[in-house]
Design a protein around this nucleic acid. Sequence first.
DNA 1: TTGTATGCGTTATCAT
DNA 2: ATGATAACGCATACAA
Lengths: 334, 334
Amino acid sequence: MTTLKELAALLNISVSTVSKALNDSHEISENTRIRVKELATKLNYKPNRIAQQLKTNKTKTIGVILPTVTNPFFAEVLHGIEMAATNNDYDIIVCLSNETLHKEKRSLELLSNGSVDGFIMAVARESQVKNETSHIKDTINNKLPVLMFDRVVNDIDCNKVIVDDFKSVYEATEHLIINQHRKNILLVSNIEELSVGKLRIEGYTKALEDHNLKPEILKLDNAVDLDVEKRIYNYLKENVAIDAILSVDHVTGIVAINMAKKLGRNIPEDLSVVGFGYEHTQLLSSPKISIIHQKAHKIGEMSTKLLIDTINDEDLKWQTIVVPSELKLNESVK
Amino acid sequence: MTTLKELAALLNISVSTVSKALNDSHEISENTRIRVKELATKLNYKPNRIAQQLKTNKTKTIGVILPTVTNPFFAEVLHGIEMAATNNDYDIIVCLSNETLHKEKRSLELLSNGSVDGFIMAVARESQVKNETSHIKDTINNKLPVLMFDRVVNDIDCNKVIVDDFKSVYEATEHLIINQHRKNILLVSNIEELSVGKLRIEGYTKALEDHNLKPEILKLDNAVDLDVEKRIYNYLKENVAIDAILSVDHVTGIVAINMAKKLGRNIPEDLSVVGFGYEHTQLLSSPKISIIHQKAHKIGEMSTKLLIDTINDEDLKWQTIVVPSELKLNESVK
DNA sequence: TTGTATGCGTTATCAT
DNA sequence: ATGATAACGCATACAA
């Protein structure tokens, strides 16, 4: 890699002159500036980022710690983060906690050595279940700003970007009750240990209570694939009164549709199905599932912008941004 | 952040002594080593990574450039990359090209300033279609090793990790012909402009020719969601003789199953469906789609290991690793 | 207008 | 066993 020193030697001028010329300092003559720039272009000079980082004590890099990236929600959030980061001349270092506490902790500690200017993270399942979050507090005390999205820790004071989990599910449930006249709405969940899962279940429960209906919940507690199918199938088979299904994750809704069809139910006439979903979810189901569409991309973008603002303005007050979800109905439902 | 200098000042010894003590140099007395380490632990000292990078001229960081991460294949590859990188004490900086040439080029150039020790990439759709790859060659000439996976550029000499696209589709097609006695096999594709799409189509075509059957291909050229459904539906409706569908991407196979069911076809009795798929693909279809399972996670892992080997051994010869796929049949198919 | 000197935090070489 | 010094590549305050 070409360095300032090399350029200086070739041009028989000092390193600082070269540096200033390249940075368009007004104290450099037109003539030398041009000479320097020409040679720089010719030799494809690029300022060494590491040296700049050491000098300025800014990395222009964000640490992104995700529980997983095979879940389409997090993949889409990552997409949003990457776009916003790029637009603001930031890089992202991505770590995956695989939902484990120790990996999350390790990533946070490893990058807290000057590698990044701040973190965007969604808390790992294990950390949330064990309510073990001291590593996150340590990071913040270490003067590294942390922004949490989606899965957040309530008693940590920091920037947050969350989804209106309670509200969106409450409203979707009300929609089923009021507009579609459903009375036996089953909630299916395989994320009931997560903060978001709890909130969604609460939204559903509250809506049913408000309309004097009885909650009915099938908890799959993170079961594996085939089990999911079987358990939903059996449940539907034995509970024929069910006229609507509300899935609080992004996969059991589609499975429910497939199982209901297998049992000969007519969708959406006899049975309404609502799930959480993302960009391509609806393409994969037939008939189309209605989805609560989380603006995952937007969550990523807003998280990034907010974190960068915080990095650049130390005494900016923490805030919590709620990104509203959108209920996208199956077209054939009126 | 605590620095060596601060530790030295507090202990009234020199910076170099502190450095040596922390690095377990044998020329430091037991006594001071312990004192130094105790204080370091107490103050939570961590060597500044940026300074180390500047000193050693190694970043221990890999640049990962992906076309997208919402495609589950790339998400799973990323997962594999991240795991292998972590196991080897490497970080990854992730950039998404969004399938565009200019973003891919920009990412490559931006990170070629000392930010990373090498690259792992899958070529963007646009770059591949326009066959514009000089930016990649430039990077390699710049002494930064590049490893390409999945979508590769043939006339660039570098490490490659690829899937046996031709072979896996050839064999899947033969399976349909020989074991399932299918004669009218439709190939559905929405990735025919990609190198992998071309290879898969060739594998299919060759298999049909070898068995004296007529190829029948539905090219969707990257159509949008609703269009995909409609076109597959119409095609199946008008071509009742079709007794097998081979999808060369990870989504049209599931759509085909749904459309075929809508048309009253019996799967797998009257119609076999094979697609490409990943971890959760089969859960989303009913009846289960048969899939050509690409070992995406393994591709990511092997790519990372190979790149790190190359980084650490300059004159290691380039190699091309083929990661075989596995045909996972629908259980009900014998 | 150009050049010299210093420092970012670390490690390595060479004194003491 | 410990310390002084230089160097990585860059930016900048200060001389000239």
